[in-house]
Design a protein around this nucleic acid. Structure first.
Length: 661
DNA sequence: AGAGTGGGCCTTTTT
DNA sequence: GGCCCACTCT
């Protein structure tokens, strides 16, 4: 288990920084500000990370022990980047600060206080797919729901529940407001949700939301815990505050206390996560919640040429709800953004690919180019075109690395060994063997989980009775693998466990099941190497569940994207920048997304998303849209350019049209 | 009865 | 690519 109590022997700082030289006056003010609550409104590209980094350095320099600093970010990537830069600035002193996503730190807190919350400390974390499966199973067993025509599927019910948890709204309320179609089976759905909650407890499982919920409740109900954490983390810094939800704000506020040293940084114009409960009000109302707070603004943009910035400003001006601020360009004038009209989807892909090659000839490296879009599948045609032309690319969307079947399978074996009551893991693994499907898996699980020592009784008569004769051989193999993984000679090392698993049968499964087994085997080899960092399977599994695609990919295959163009959803591009950015599919229905528009405040959120997309560009910005596209079963439907294009000031862009030749 | 396979249909964003 | 359903095979 990773402990979050860090070095006790923090000494005085041994580095010197010339803050006046490194920072602009606005940034400097933030960095040198004294104790108490601080709100920093940081525009896109205004050196937010830089400011946070120097603020941390300054705290260390003035004698604050690293162990008293808690740095909360939104993504793993942001966390790693921040800690790396702190280390750089402070001269590489290995002063460990508690840093990570809310979920990550919540996990550490929960491990430590599991018993108090009614869990055993070897609990495992459900990722989205696991949680969905668990709910699906409960729904399928409910007669009323199963026979009802308009019943939610597992993933929909999970979304409703998650939204209710993250916004602190009663489940029934969310159901009535946002999913009225399910009104008639409300009572049954409530029952299912309650079953889901108790199943998690019985099986020693927590989902993503529990990591936050348990933490918040722990702080609310136990003044001793609150005081301990308040004393431990005397300095809290929170990045991307505009995307935090009520739960997260509650956690931070409880730890910091009313006059605590809480610094929150964010940009209301870049709030794009309200669909999962992010609360705009956290940042807007911060001054009211913390009456003694001081407010700072960072308004100089260092990233983009003024042309890109004018376009961005011209767009976001159309939003009513925002902090007034004027973002100013620091850089010299460059080229105007281009809005490119293409004949159809293939031309759109063709244009982007060709322009990429031109840019490369002009000296822009491929890794400095990104294509951004609203939804995963919007990049399909482009991927084909890039493949055809041999242009290397990495896709930062779609199926996540850690969510691929073979990675999930390996995780499931490890989960069984660490938490033999993990029903989902058992069933996933069982179904990998011949002649074992859902029904047989259920029966075997029933026989196993009632044993006092599930892993010790694999060949017990009572268990064997549940295994039909056709499946006996597979069961024998599985039992042997599990005994091997559970044996002491692997030293409980997740890395060795993965290797042992691959060597004792799983490789055969891959070879017989997947055409691309070679790539998958490579993945597992890298996964095993990556796992060396973790001493216990629990720690490793938690990392698997809490890491997103980007982090996972990068962690596992370092440097693979050195020479490649990046394809990403706009959401995943937040906080990043490239010399050239293409915004794909800028048509009504895609950007803005048709469904998102139906949500309250949907148009403004979609506009902020557009704003995030365009402000990723440093030098070159292309907004591309096709006139014709296929929709459902209709071919060649005429598209309308995005309203976000139409409302732009005409002087902020140049229009062009694709002529293929 | 239950395992396995193929076709049809849909596709928001994520810790 | 994922999910569901209908169909066939054991």
């Amino acid at each position: 288990m990773k402990e979050y109590v860090l070095r006790a022997e923090d000494g005085p700082a041994r580095f010197r920084i010339d803050y006046e030289k490194e920072l602009n006056p606005q940034q400097l003010e933030v960095v040198l500000a004294g104790d108490g609550p601080l709100l920093v409104i940081a525009g896109a590209g205004s050196g937010k990370t830089r400011t946070l980094t120097y603020r941390v350095a300054r705290l260390l320099e003035s004698g604050v022990p690293a162990s008293q600093i808690l740095l909360l970010t939104f993504t793993n990537k942001a966390a790693r980047e921040m800690l790396r830069r702190v280390e750089l600035v402070t001269g590489g002193e290995h002063r460990r600060i508690t840093g990570g996503t809310f979920h990550h730190v919540g996990h550490l807190v929960l491990r430590r206080n599991a018993e108090r919350l009614g869990y055993r400390s070897n609990f495992t974390i459900l990722d989205r797919e696991d949680a969905k499966d668990l709910l699906h199973g409960i729904l399928a067993k409910n007669r009323t729901v199963a026979t009802c025509k308009t019943a939610p599927k597992g993933d929909v019910l999970l979304e409703i529940l998650s939204y209710s948890v993250n916004t602190g709204t009663a489940f029934e309320r969310v159901l009535a407001d946002k999913w009225p179609v399910f009104g008639e089976i409300e009572g049954e759905l409530v029952r299912c949700v309650n079953q889901y909650r108790s199943r998690k407890r019985d099986l020693n499982l927590v989902d993503f939301d529990d990591l936050l919920l348990c933490w918040r409740d722990l702080l609310s109900k136990n003044s001793d815990v609150r005081e301990a954490q308040h004393a431990q983390w005397r300095y809290l810094l929170v990045d991307e505050y505009q995307d935090t939800n009520l739960l997260q704000a509650g956690i931070v506020e409880r730890i910091a206390g009313e006059a605590g040293n809480l610094m929150v940084v964010g940009d209301d114009a870049q709030s794009i996560y309200s669909f999962r409960g992010a609360n705009f009000g956290n940042i807007i109302d911060f001054p009211e919640r913390f009456p003694t707070c001081r407010i700072f603004k960072l308004e100089t943009n260092y990233r983009s040429v003024p042309e890109v910035l004018s376009l961005a400003n011209s767009s976001i001006r159309n939003n009513a709800r925002q902090f007034p601020k004027v973002l100013q360009a620091y850089r010299q004038s460059g080229v105007l953004p281009e809005i490119v009209r293409c004949g159809d989807v293939d031309e759109q892909a063709g244009f982007v690919a060709k322009r990429m090659l031109d840019l490369r000839d002009e000296g822009v490296e491929l890794r400095d180019i990104a294509v951004l879009y609203r939804a995963h599948w919007h990049s399909m045609e482009l991927q084909m075109e890039l493949t055809r032309l041999g242009i290397p690319f990495v896709v930062r969307s779609g199926v996540r690395f850690f969510e691929q079947a073979h990675v999930k399978d390996v995780g499931a074996y490890l989960k069984i060994v660490t938490n033999p009551l993990d029903e989902l893991a058992w069933k996933r693994v069982l179904k990998l063997y011949p002649r074992i499907g859902a029904a047989t898996a259920d029966r075997i699980w029933e026989a196993i989980h009632t044993r006092e020592h599930p892993l010790g009784d694999l060949e017990h008569e009572a268990v064997l009775r549940a295994v039909p004769s056709g499946a006996r051989r597979g069961w024998g193999e599985l039992a042997a693998v599990l005994r091997r993984l559970d044996s002491q000679d692997l030293h409980r090392s997740p890395s060795e466990m993965i290797r042992a698993l691959v060597n004792s049968g799983y490789e055969t499964h891959l070879v017989t099941t997947y055409a691309n087994f070679h790539a998958r085997l490579d993945d597992l080899r890298r996964l095993s190497e990556y796992a060396v960092k973790y001493e216990t399977a629990e720690a490793f599994l938690a990392e698997l569940a809490l890491s997103n695609t980007v982090a996972g990919r990068e962690a596992v295959e370092e440097g693979a994207e050195d020479e490649a163009v990046v394809l990403s959803t706009i959401h995943q591009a937040k906080g990043l920048e490239w010399r050239a950015v293409f915004v794909l599919w800028a048509v009504e229905g895609k950007i803005p997304d048709g469904r998102a528009l139906k949500e309250e405040g949907g148009e403004e959120e979609e506009r902020r998303l557009f704003y995030v997309a365009v402000t990723r560009a440093k030098d070159h910005l292309y907004i591309v849209w096709p006139i014709l596209a296929n929709e459902r079963n209709l071919q060649g439907v005429i598209q309308r350019p995005s309203r976000f294009i139409q409302e732009l000031d005409r002087s902020t862009f140049e229009e062009s049209q694709v002529v293929l030749g």
